[in-house]
Amino acid sequence: MDFRIFTEPQQGADYDDLLRVARAAEDAGYDAFFRSDHYLAMGDVSGEPGPTDAWITLAGLARETSRIRLGTLVTAATFRHPGPLAISVSQVDRMSGGRVELGLGTGWFEAEHLAYGLEFPSLGERFDRFAEQLAVVTGLWETLPGDRFSFSGKHYTVVDSPALPKPVQQPRPPVVIGGRGATRTPALAARYADEFNVPFAAPDLVSTQFERVAAACAEIDRDPGEIVRSIALTVCVGRTDAEVAARALTIGRDEAQVRAEGLAGSPAEAVDRLGRWREQTGISRVYLQLLDLNDLDQIELVATEVVPQLG
């Protein structure tokens, strides 16, 4: 099982905070460091010092790390046009030596769009734009050197693009798609995804989503085994009950709730919970949502006492 650290810097972090966590995750042996792509804090927090742009952050981390994979969970299709997004991700892939992954979704947080002057269309239109962005981004990446790429959609048109720069990873960097949608999301995953992620959901729902993706793959004759199955869980692991309670308090979560819905408790409890998740859902990757970016000790604790028993 792969273990990845997943951060929410819109809640209050600057680049140095993220670099410190990314380096700690790399040193501890985690597979990847991911971050959300948001421009506004959620809940009763100030968000100071303010948002950091996801792809600018990952570009910096690409030059200041050496092994760990880097990506977004997830970039909103409402934030960037697909051509410039393909360029940005390709460039960061080159800067990292081929360690980048793109998580892409429809966008959902209306308040951040209003706060920074971004268009926020209806859900149906956001899905339409999302589908076209997947087609354009992957199409640009997969265009052979010397060839040209064109696309004509309702929302985006690309004409005779040289499709440069090329990413290091060929035919393209991995694409992560996820969510709980019953129809369009699984269909898009079957067509474009290298990984399907179901965040913060009960095992029954996770299994149902994976089954929907597998059915969508069957409809287009794709092997569903080609798609990595992953989940995201809030992490709150401690050596003692008191340590778990203190960590829950620090991140502003009810301890009972995070124990029920996240990955909380002792290392042994975490191993048991993830083992049951793997048996029930077939996951091979887990994103640990680390809400306290100062808690480097928890990164080390999970790496030394949980990961080796499930790797």
Rank of each mutant, 00 (worst) to 15 (best):
P51N: 04
E300Y: 01
L233W: 06
L73P: 00
M1N: 05
L233Q: 08
G178R: 03
L18M: 14
V244L: 02
G153Q: 11
P167K: 07
F196E: 02
V92Q: 08
V198H: 03
S46N: 10
Y156S: 06
L144K: 15
S66T: 15
R180I: 15
S152H: 14
E195G: 07
R80S: 00
P267E: 07
A131R: 02
E269V: 04
A86P: 12
S284V: 14
E300I: 12
T281I: 11
D44M: 09
V271N: 02
R148A: 13
P174M: 10
R126E: 10
E110G: 04
R222V: 05
E125K: 14
W141T: 13
T106L: 14
G238Q: 07
A218S: 14
P199G: 07
A62P: 04
D17E: 06
H155S: 11
G139I: 01
R191S: 13
A246S: 10
V45R: 08
A245R: 14
D241Y: 00
A270P: 03
L118I: 15
E64F: 09
Q309V: 04
R184E: 15
L18V: 09
L102I: 11
P174S: 09
V237A: 07
V271M: 03
N294Y: 05
L73C: 12
G47Y: 07
F79Q: 11
T143M: 08
A268S: 11
T240Y: 01
A218N: 07
P121L: 08
L70Y: 06
G238I: 02
P162L: 08
M95S: 11
F210K: 06
A32Y: 01
D128I: 00
S66E: 14
G47D: 11
A245V: 10
S266Q: 05
C236L: 03
V237N: 02
L58Y: 10
L102K: 03
A245Y: 00
F120K: 11
Y30M: 09
A260Q: 13
A193Q: 03
W277N: 07
N197L: 12
L18G: 05
R273S: 09
V244P: 14
A246C: 01
M42L: 15
